[in-house]
Design a binder for these strands. Structure first.
Lengths: 95, 95
DNA sequence: ATAAATAGGTTTATAATATAAACTGATTTA
DNA sequence: TAAATCAGTTTATATTATAAACCTATTTAT
């Protein structure tokens, strides 16, 4: 009847991060913080979780002298996101 | 950018319960337990939360000699569910 | 008649989670 | 050179989801 909702994606902030990354394919820490309006600590933790799961890859580098953390969604992440959306449909009366 | 996801509805089990109730307009405890495949304790707690929020009404009665707890969604519950679905769309690339 | 299962729940304990506050180290500005 | 600001990370806390344990009534088996 109901499909399982991947708990890693069924989280407001992680879902927001994934939602951004699936459309832009590359976003840095600051951009994610601005778009999601979450605190830096919260973003940091959730990025780490998504990274551990292999849903995104994180590259820490520099932009001039400033540190810059760039995130990209992986193929695995795209698939997980798509499956999550499919699973959600079993809860909403959307076909 | 992203709309807030009502935390009361952004829960796999409560969402399942609401999803059922929005389509059948009346379901008892046993039916909800079977359809959601959750434990009775879990169902019990989540029904209570939805009830406290005024999203559903709960009537405890009898069916023959057996106790029977019947749940119905309220107008407030329907609205909250619809708003939740709208909010979700801001995260998925669905229009 | 009585013991053991079963039904329909509720209460509670526990483990997982989300979140923000506090912190760090570098860089820029006053 | 002291104070702010930037870009994050670590940690502490409060909330939450979940299942285990429990309870009371009823049915079934002996």
């Amino acid at each position: 009847m109901f499909k399982e909702l991947n708990p890693l994606l069924h989280s407001e902030l992680r879902l927001g991060i994934m939602s951004i990354l699936i459309s832009v394919e590359e976003a840095d820490f600051v951009y994610l913080r601005e778009k999601t309006a979450a605190t830096a600590g919260n973003i940091s933790v959730q990025i780490e979780k998504l990274s551990e799961a292999g849903y995104i890859v994180v590259e820490r580098g520099f932009l001039g002298k400033r540190t810059r953390t760039v995130c990209k969604i992986t193929e695995k992440g795209v698939l997980a996101f798509e499956e999550y959306v499919e699973a959600l449909k079993s809860y909403l009366n959307v076909k």
